[in-house]
């Protein structure tokens, strides 16, 4: 697939919030793109700005207190310059969302069928009986047994997994080009999680849609992604094809996330330390306060520029800039994998 016929092109996306404690920059000049039929995963610890970034795409972030800037282009059309009506049309027809908590994401006062077909009624003026038929078909497609009876069920009558399936049906009803799935499996238990991921993979094939998938779990990324964007404290740390990221995680933050994948044999408590204060992000690399390799260059200026270390694989770390020895950070991954004690070799 050529890089130029991207479905969605996000450039310089910045989202700030005006709060009682001052301005907070949740997403800071982030770029990414999604090709047709492609699955891109945004991964990062909780609080990294993944949700805000994805919700800034179709203007779901409340403004004020939010303020979104940058450009978002869908098939070359700039969403930021659209009027409200056009934007609503995009939401109904082109870009659909599913959210982390299906329980909260549905209105408890309406049947799931009503909620699934609402978009049809609003955007396409489909007659009731036809909308119902399409809703039932979709519920069947997302694997809800006895769909025609469940159509009239209320959310509280469904299990968590069933609710997320219904949410997926709700998202698919307008035949979207892009499905944005924000941690859709995080609130579900592990077996259901696997089923939902499988379902998304199948649906993507059937419908030929693109998926922007958000998760804090690299384990999930491995299941579903074509490409990966690693985000930390509102910035992109590393990006690349899923294979390259797993084969050669090159940013110290990505490496730290790798250590946190539960089924790697070790129990982990996550990465030591916490995210920087979003009101007052540190100069230089956002990850510096928690990075084992940080040196004085890491704490001045802006986040290091992303450097392409191989085709389509970019890393934002000073060690990949010219004049540095990138093996310092690369080796550390080898070191932790093979448990060798090569620390001395990395010192300058």
């Amino acid at each position: 697939m050529s890089v130029n016929d991207n479905l969605l092109e996000v450039k310089n996306l910045t989202t700030e919030f005006r709060t009682d404690n001052g301005m907070l920059t949740a997403v800071d000049a982030v770029d990414f793109s999604i090709g047709e039929g492609e699955t891109v995963c945004i991964v990062g610890e909780s609080g990294s700005g993944k949700t805000v970034a994805t919700e800034s795409i179709t203007g779901l972030v409340k403004e004020p207190p939010g303020k979104v800037s940058g450009t978002v282009e869908l098939e070359g059309k700039d969403l930021q310059s659209m009027n409200k009506k056009e934007l609503r049309q995009v939401r109904g027809d082109n870009i659909a969302h599913i959210f982390q908590n299906p329980q909260e994401a549905m209105n408890h006062c309406y049947s799931i069928g009503w909620q699934i077909t609402e978009a049809l009624q609003v955007h396409q003026d489909v007659p009731d009986d036809e909308a119902r038929k399409r809703g039932i078909d979709l519920l069947e497609r997302v694997g809800l047994a006895n769909a025609s009876a469940r159509f009239d069920d209320y959310p509280h009558e469904l299990s968590g997994g069933q609710k997320q399936r219904a949410m997926i049906a709700m998202a698919l009803v307008g035949n979207p080009d892009l499905l944005i799935a924000d941690e859709p499996t995080t609130a579900l238990d592990v077996t259901v999680q696997a089923q939902i991921l499988k379902l998304l993979n199948e649906l993507q094939e059937d419908y030929g849609m693109s998926i922007l998938f958000v998760t804090h779990d690299l384990g999930v990324v491995a299941e579903i992604a074509d490409r990966v964007v690693v985000m930390y404290a509102g910035k992109v740390m590393e990006r690349g094809d899923v294979f390259d990221i797993f084969e050669e995680p090159s940013h110290p933050y990505t490496q730290a996330l790798m250590e946190c994948i539960p089924d790697k044999g070790r129990e982990t408590d996550g990465i030591p330390g916490t995210l920087p204060n979003p009101y007052n992000t540190p100069d230089g690399c956002r990850f510096a306060p928690r990075c084992d390799h940080a040196n004085e260059d890491c704490t001045i200026g802006d986040q290091p520029e992303e450097i392409e270390i191989e085709r389509n694989h970019e890393v934002s770390c000073v060690y990949y800039q010219s004049g540095y020895d990138s093996s310092v950070v690369r080796d550390s991954e080898l070191e932790s994998d093979s448990s060798s004690t090569e620390m001395g070799a990395t010192d300058d």
């Binding site: 779901l60 609503r88 995009v90 969302h97 549905m106 609402e118």
Partner: peptide, 17 residues
């Protein structure tokens, strides 16, 4: 500010509705 309002917005539902 409920999540379901965000869902409705994401579906392209007008504010009045």
């Amino acid at each position: 500010n409920a999540d379901f309002m965000k869902t409705a917005k994401a579906k392209g539902v007008k504010p009045t509705r």
